[in-house]
């Protein structure tokens, strides 16, 4: 199995390490021609969504990526990746990939001093799962057809819509690979 990892900016190596541990191969997407490679799934990692979105646009990667995801490419998006996928960003006019019908709120917990570890997380289909939130977003509202996979104190932090899974936290950081396994099982 070959998984593409968006590698324009952010914590993409951390995802690759988890995938390697699970026996998957990875390919980094840094420019338009990398999208011609064959792959079975896609990971949109954490980082700065403004930077990643701008690079996707200026490196002419956005249309092809959007098309692949719309056509059912299994996708796991974390933190900034969730913002890239969202159809609406609260208080902003920006849309990046825009294939996930949710409204996401950026920096929803404030600055770095608002970052937190949530020990009692629960992820539908996986079970108890500790979660790292770093200047994290959350999902403010979802459209029909979007399933909530995780919530923290009443706020949605994990969703699935068709082949797209998106979370506000960082499953690649805690050393627990069960969400990646859950993703790989969908492929």
């Amino acid at each position: 199995m070959r998984i593409a990892v968006l590698a324009v900016q952010g914590a993409f190596e951390e995802h690759e390490k988890v995938l390697w541990k699970l026996g998957a191969k990875t390919v980094q997407l840094r420019k338009a021609e990398d999208l011609k490679e064959k792959f079975d799934g896609l990971i949109l990692p954490g980082g700065e969504s403004t930077v990643q979105g701008k690079l996707l646009r200026e490196l002419s990667m956005l249309p092809a990526l959007r098309e692949k995801i719309t056509n059912g490419l299994p996708t796991l998006a974390t933190c900034a990746g969730l913002i890239l996928l969202a159809k609406h960003i609260a208080d902003e006019n920006t849309v990046h990939i825009g294939t996930l019908p949710v409204t996401v709120k950026r920096n929803a917990y404030g600055r770095q001093l608002g970052s937190f570890h949530y020990a009692n997380g629960y992820f539908q289909g996986v079970g108890a799962f500790p979660m790292e939130f770093i200047r994290a977003p959350y999902v403010e509202s979802i459209s029909d057809g979007v399933e909530t996979l995780a919530a923290v104190e009443g706020r949605i932090v994990g969703v699935q819509y068709k082949s797209q899974i998106a979370v506000a936290f960082h499953p690649e950081l805690g050393g627990d690979s069960r969400i990646h396994e859950y993703f790989l099982r969908q492929i």
């Binding site: 952010g10 951390e14 900034a80 970052s115």
Partner: peptide, 9 residues
Amino acid sequence: ELAQMLKGG
């Protein structure tokens, strides 16, 4: 971890 998110930037 915040520093990790800044990588490649």
